[in-house]
């Protein structure tokens, strides 16, 4: 997994509530057996005016000029600002893969859906929860200031604005370490293999019917 320490970048504002993973990456692009190749179809139905298909590149598509990510000022955005319950719906990890591939390293919202949140941490995408009021203000500032950049500092757990204002954010200490060091999550559990085997033996005695096949 990619590690995450600090990111400074343009913030793209996606002013919608309950953005679901079907919007982040529509199902017709989930037919791949790879972990890559999803970035071109991030928010496909919003970014483009025509229906996409696997293998069609963005150059061959009709761009929807009204969609925020297509506006020139947000072209190089590395941070996404959005509204509550981001990532609800389907468990598809492809949603996180496509955000990362498109170039986002961090998503800021007042709340996230549970499965999406776990998927973020498995892939080095940093989800930051800030207060609704702060988010409102960020939306206003972005709108008023072309080229508005912020810095996200994971070690300090801070979001910094150009004028020096700072917002602290909370993160589970271990999840923080996983992101900072890009740790292999499965490897960490494998270190406990004897404990798991011992539990399994006990469990097998207690619930033998579970182990019939």
């Amino acid at each position: 997994m990619k590690s995450f320490k600090r990111v400074t970048g343009i913030v793209a504002p996606l002013d919608r509530l309950n953005v679901d993973t079907d919007q982040i990456i529509p199902k017709q692009f989930l037919k791949s057996i790879e972990r890559t190749g999803f970035g071109d179809n991030l928010f496909d139905a919003w970014r483009f005016g025509d229906e996409g298909a696997i293998g069609k590149t963005p150059n061959e598509r009709r761009i929807n000029p009204d969609f925020v990510l297509n506006q020139p000022r947000y072209q190089d955005a590395g941070i996404l600002l959005t509204r509550g319950n981001f990532g609800c719906g389907s468990s598809r990890e492809h949603a996180v893969w496509s955000l990362l591939e498109f170039g986002f390293r961090c998503v800021i919202a007042p709340s996230f859906a549970d499965i999406f949140l776990s998927n973020c941490f498995k892939n080095g995408l940093l989800p930051i929860v800030l207060k609704e009021k702060t988010i409102d203000r960020l939306f206003e500032m972005i709108d008023a200031t072309p080229g508005f950049e912020i810095s996200v500092d994971l070690p300090a757990q801070e979001v910094r604005l150009p004028d020096g204002e700072r917002f602290e954010f909370a993160i589970d200490p271990f999840k923080k370490r996983t992101l900072l060091e890009g740790l292999d999550d499965i490897g960490l559990t494998m270190d406990h293999r004897e404990e798991i085997a011992a539990f399994e033996a006990k469990h097998r005695k207690r619930m033998p019917w579970v182990f019939t096949s």
Binding site: E34, D172, F174, R177, T178, L188, I196
Partner: peptide, 25 residues
């Protein structure tokens, strides 16, 4: 099963169901 160093619990799973879209990777 127990906790990892991070304080998260390792929960033993009895059954995993698989289908074609989310398992290949």
């Amino acid at each position: 099963v127990g906790k990892r160093a991070d304080g998260q619990t390792m929960l033993y799973i009895d059954l995993q169901l698989l289908h074609e879209v989310t398992s290949p990777q």
